[in-house]
Nucleic acid binder design. Sequence first.
DNA 1: AAGAATACTGACTATTTAGTCAGTTGTCAA
DNA 2: TTGACAACTGACTAAATAGTCAGTATTCTT
Lengths: 207, 207
Amino acid sequence: MSDLSALTKRQKEVLEAIYNSLKNYGYPPTLADLRDKLDVTSNQSVLDFLKILEEKGFIKKEEGTARSIVILPSGYDLLFKPPLAPFLGVTTAGFPAEPLEMNGIWDDISPELSKYAGEVFLLKINGDSMINAGISNGDYVLVKKDKEYVSGDIVLADVDGESTVKRFISENKPPFVYLKPENPNYKNIIFTEAVRLKGKIISVIRN
Amino acid sequence: MSDLSALTKRQKEVLEAIYNSLKNYGYPPTLADLRDKLDVTSNQSVLDFLKILEEKGFIKKEEGTARSIVILPSGYDLLFKPPLAPFLGVTTAGFPAEPLEMNGIWDDISPELSKYAGEVFLLKINGDSMINAGISNGDYVLVKKDKEYVSGDIVLADVDGESTVKRFISENKPPFVYLKPENPNYKNIIFTEAVRLKGKIISVIRN
DNA sequence: AAGAATACTGACTATTTAGTCAGTTGTCAA
DNA sequence: TTGACAACTGACTAAATAGTCAGTATTCTT
């Protein structure tokens, strides 16, 4: 038997189609809605998929009831969280990483933000190197993956395998390009090949 | 004609019944579901209500479509935010109020937070009197209504009809009880009858 | 090479659900 | 005291929707 949590590409498309309906109309799709979205002509195809998704625990539906498909938490997980996973172990701001407990926290962030899924992730700040930029120990920052950075951006950087949050500076005088902590007790990090920019901090959340 | 945004007690019950269905089952109710919940025996009663709620802009439904009732933002406002309304016009942090644009912003905050509905609201900070506490101009703060405050809490206070965010201090030496701005350019506000504490700041959100 | 799983078809029925019609009752303000 | 409004009834029809049946084609595994 195949892995309980594994979905084929097509099956994931179905889950996404359900989610999109929900998002676009505010209520779940009918079999016919899904039939159209999935470009099939038979209800049976849809019922097959729903049965599989239900057996694997991603959705739930009531028999004999119109528009009764509900996406379960594990379904939402599959839709949104997997691309974030690689980052979740890491943590930041100049000090050793601590595993991030997403439980609860992610729920406090809007599902709306899931439109950024794959591009945005949440990190818990560990350290005080950015205190003067209003980012304190224990805060959560929302990081958006990006390719372009301008001087002054607050960024998540990977320095020799260790993650850190600093201000990115690029200027016409020495030391030209470097990472600047917003705390006089910390030193600038000169940009070398060991430094990689992972994303921009787009939001700070403090509870 | 009566106020467009006013609902009778019964009409509000209907809106709540819709919401409860949504919450309990994950999808909207049918006419029959509502018929049962509202303890009426005719579909027409339900249709009458839905028509009124739709005309008044609290819900939307598709004709000829099962379970197609969607609660609109103003419907959710009515369900959760009414106790907050008095606050929304106000704004904060030492300077004149600016009407708060909830649109978009509220969407960035989790629906999960609606469990605090009636106790929590969002304010946009206008001013820099709390800059050293990490609360800057343009930030949003999540305020939780409360009755008990301890020295050191950052609070939303009403001072002579004007709202402001400050640190609440209560100590054994003069001036004993007062509101302290976290910015040396601002003066302490001594606690008098003109000062009322409205809530605690539980979260700061910066975009 | 055979079976299992996946993805799919087309015609059909049964059930659910929305909506209509033609009213009644009670309340409250002009 | 009349008329608008709010809340409601019971029987009905029309439409939407779920689900069945009996298959085929393709790919992957053993």
